[in-house]
Structures are given as C-alpha cells and as structure tokens.
Amino acid sequence: MSIQHFRVALIPFFAAFCLPVFAHPETLVKVKDAEDQLGARVGYIELDLNSGKILESFRPEERFPMMSTFKVLLCGAVLSRVDAGQEQLGRRIHYSQNDLVEYSPVTEKHLTDGMTVRELCSAAITMSDNTAANLLLTTIGGPKELTAFLHNMGDHVTRLDRWEPELNEAIPNDERDTTMPAAMATTLRKLLTGELLTLASRQQLIDWMEADKVAGPLLRSALPAGWFIADKSGASERGSRGIIAALGPDGKPSRIVVIYTTGSQATMDERNRQIAEIGASLIKHW
C-alpha cells in the first residue's frame, strides 16, 4: 500500500480515536468582514473530516451557485459507476470541434485522439475544463442524473440543472445549479471518507483534487509548508466565487472547508484575496 493510500485508509480509523476539536470565532469575524469588503453574501462552513461535526458556519443553509465545484461531485458519480462495473477509467471518448465550449484548455488539444474517462476527470478537476465536464455528464446521463446520484447519497439540496457554460449564470434567487455550504461539505465528506466509493476510488478523487492547478490564489496561497490540501474552485457570473477543500497539517486532511460568495461587484483578484484571507484566519486559529 502506498503512503497516499495509507493516509486515506486511516481516516475512518482516526475517527474513533480523534482528539476533540474546537472552533475559533475569529474566522467568522473574517467571513463577515469579507461580506462587507465584497458587498456580497458569503457562505462558509468548516467540518471535522473524521466526526462530521460542524466546527463553524455562516449562512450554511443558504443557496449559492455551485460553479465548477460541481466537477468533484461529477467525478464522484463517474467513479461510483466504475466501482459498479458500469464504466472504465481507461475508456477512450472521441469528440468533435462542435463539442468544445468556452474554457477547454485540455480537451481542445485532443480533438484527433480523444481522451480517456480518467483523463477527462483529471482535466475537469485539475484544470476546470468545461468540455471535459460536459463529456463526463453525458456518460452518466446528464445533469438530472447527477442530481439523482446526489439524492441517493442523501443530499436533497444540491442540484445540477444545466450544462457548461450555462450553469454559471448565477441569477439571484434561481435555485438551478446551486447548493448550500452545509450540504456540499457533508456530500464531499461522504465521497472522501464514506463507503459509497471503494478505497481506490476515494484515493483517485482526492488525488485529482490535490493536483488542482487553478486554485492557487485561494486557500493554497495561505497554506503553510507541510500542510495538505485537495480542493476545487469555481467562478461564475455576478461576482460569484467558491472553493471546496479537504485540508490539514502534517500532510493529511482533517477538515472540510466550503466557501461560496455571490453578488459582488468586486474584481476577481479581490474575491480571491478575501477567500485567501479567510483561509489565513482559519489556519492561524486552527
């Protein structure tokens, strides 16, 4: 067993022997300050990975656009099909120029040879490739089937209704393509630590998230040396920005953090900075 597999395998073990964890309200002060700075709603939740206990939250049951954070859930659904023998990570999918949508930095380079399901999930999570996400959605039956998968997991909140890039419209009070911080955190925890996926698939999912290449300005920018993070960011219209992450010190994840914001007129750089500052406060008061 590799060191990485050993780390994931021990998560349920540590759950039975973990020391108590305590929240620090200073982080919530920073979350509220971020709302003021951005002139927008901010949703935040911090969940103990082992016990599932909510350590701190702000607007945990308000809806926010999922943006590209849905791609982790999508690849979780794909992996569940792999575990059930209904899909193969090595299966090659061919597509055409007509399938390409905006922001497809990986898939646009493989029009001649296609990409495997594994490569598409990697592109969707690590590079947030939109065409990769659409091709993967097709393999499971579309957005409604992803919503059904989540319902079967016990998540009756999170929903995907449209494809890339339309799902990023982020219209106020529109429940399409939205989640709540509490629902997303719970669902992510189930995918990473529960029995829904095999150990190999849980490890694959967290490996893809750990290799995320487009979330550098967010929580990763505040991460001390030696800390672990596996994450997925998202951005969409109407000043929306978000990130879902499993992180912790000593090279292993111990908490789930979900941050969403929407309705801001601030620049992308400012939205990134506010999320990074929330992360810095979280780490300082860990």
Rank of each mutant, 00 (worst) to 15 (best):
A9S: 13
K32N: 11
L137R: 00
A34T: 05
R202T: 12
G52S: 03
V82Y: 05
S240F: 04
G239L: 01
R220E: 01
H156Q: 11
P65C: 02
V157E: 08
W163R: 07
S264R: 05
R7H: 07
A245G: 04
D250Y: 11
S96Q: 13
T147I: 04
T112S: 14
V106E: 10
P249G: 01
Q88S: 14
D269E: 14
H5Q: 09
F14I: 13
A16S: 14
P65R: 03
P165R: 03
R238E: 11
P60M: 13
L282V: 12
L19V: 15
V72G: 06
L38C: 05
Q203L: 09
K190G: 12
V82I: 10
E210M: 08
S240V: 01
R202Q: 15
F58S: 05
V101I: 10
M66L: 15
L223F: 02
A222S: 12
V31I: 13
S221P: 05
L218A: 03
S201L: 06
W286C: 08
A183R: 05
A225L: 11
V106D: 06
A16R: 04
G141E: 10
K252C: 11
T138K: 15
D129G: 00
D99H: 13
H151D: 12
A15N: 06
G251K: 09
A40G: 15
L89P: 05
N173R: 11
L199S: 13
L100V: 11
G226S: 07
L218G: 03
F70S: 05
G239R: 03
E166I: 07
G216Q: 12
A182P: 04
S122M: 15
E102Q: 12
K32M: 10
G216I: 03
N134K: 01
G248R: 08
G85Y: 07
L160R: 06
T186A: 14
I11Q: 05
G43W: 00
L10H: 07
I93G: 00
V157R: 10
R176W: 05
T139R: 09
D269A: 12
S96L: 12
T126V: 09
A200C: 11
A40T: 05
P172C: 08
G263V: 06
T267M: 07
E270Q: 14
L19I: 15
H94E: 10
Q203A: 12
G216W: 05
W286L: 09
P249H: 02
A215R: 02
W163E: 06
A266G: 08
R91L: 03
D269V: 09
T261H: 07
M67C: 11
G114A: 03
A280S: 13
G226H: 09
R118E: 14
K109Q: 11
M180Q: 14
H110L: 08
A266T: 10
K213F: 05
L89E: 03
F14A: 13
I171M: 14
A133V: 08
T158R: 00
R81C: 03
V258C: 08
K252N: 10
A266N: 05
A276S: 10
A40S: 12
S221F: 05
K32T: 06
D174T: 02
R202L: 02
A9G: 13
S57E: 09
M127W: 15
K213Q: 15
A222T: 13
T262R: 08
I125C: 06
T139G: 09
H151V: 14
E166V: 07
P253S: 04
T179S: 05
H94L: 13
P60K: 10
A183E: 06
L150A: 08
A15G: 15
L135V: 11
M115G: 01
E169L: 10
L218Y: 02
G251W: 05
L218C: 03
V82A: 08
Q86D: 11
Q37L: 13
Y95L: 05
R7C: 08
P181Q: 00
L111G: 05
I11K: 06
D99F: 06
T126A: 09
H285L: 04
A77V: 09
G154S: 03
N168D: 08
R41S: 06
R241C: 04
T126L: 04
G76V: 05
W208F: 03
V82C: 11
L79R: 00
L38Y: 08
G279D: 06
A222D: 10
P217H: 09
W163G: 05
E119A: 07
D155I: 12
P224T: 02
K53S: 09
F6I: 12
T198E: 09
H285N: 11
V31G: 00
R41G: 02
P224D: 02
K30I: 06
S221E: 10
Q97C: 08
R238N: 15
T126P: 06
M127V: 14
Q88W: 13
R92L: 15
G85L: 06
N50T: 15
T198N: 12
L223Q: 01
A280G: 09
S2V: 09
K144W: 08
E277A: 10
E169R: 08
S68C: 00
R241L: 04
Q88T: 14
D207G: 14
D161G: 02
A200F: 07
F6E: 06
V106A: 07
V42C: 05
A246F: 09
L79Y: 00
S80K: 14
T178C: 03
E277W: 02
R162Q: 06
H24N: 01
G242I: 00
T126D: 09
A148G: 13
Q86A: 12
S221M: 08
F149S: 06
R255S: 01
R238A: 13
V82T: 08
L10P: 06
L19E: 12
P65Q: 04
D269T: 11
D99R: 06
I54G: 01
G90I: 09
A84L: 15
D99W: 07
E62G: 00
L38R: 03
L223C: 09
K252L: 09
Q88R: 12
L223G: 01
S68G: 00
D250Q: 12
A225V: 13
N173E: 15
C75R: 00
K284R: 05
R220S: 01
P65A: 06
N168A: 07
N134H: 01
D161S: 03
V29G: 14
Q97P: 15
F70A: 06
D250I: 04
S2E: 07
Q88E: 13
G251A: 09
Q86H: 13
P224H: 02
N168E: 07
S236L: 01
R63L: 05
T147S: 06
T186S: 14
R238W: 12
A170C: 13
R220Q: 01
G194E: 08
L38A: 04
S236N: 10
Y95I: 11
N173L: 12
S236A: 15
E210R: 11
A246K: 01
S80G: 11
Q265E: 14
D113G: 11
E166S: 09
E166G: 10
P20R: 08
T262A: 10
N130Y: 05
L49C: 01
Y103V: 05
G234R: 00
P20L: 04
L282G: 01
L223Y: 01
E26D: 10
M184S: 00
M153R: 04
E87Y: 03
A9E: 06
L137M: 09
L219K: 01
P181C: 04
L160M: 10
H94G: 08
S240Y: 06
M180V: 11
P12S: 14
E108R: 05
D174C: 03
L219Q: 01
G85A: 10
R176P: 02
T193V: 15
G279A: 10
E237A: 15
Y95V: 06
A34S: 07
T138G: 15
Q274G: 07
S96I: 06
P12T: 15
G279L: 04
D48G: 03
V258I: 06
K30R: 09
P224R: 01
L137A: 02
E277H: 04
E210L: 05
D269R: 10
E108C: 07
I206M: 15
T147D: 05
L135Q: 05
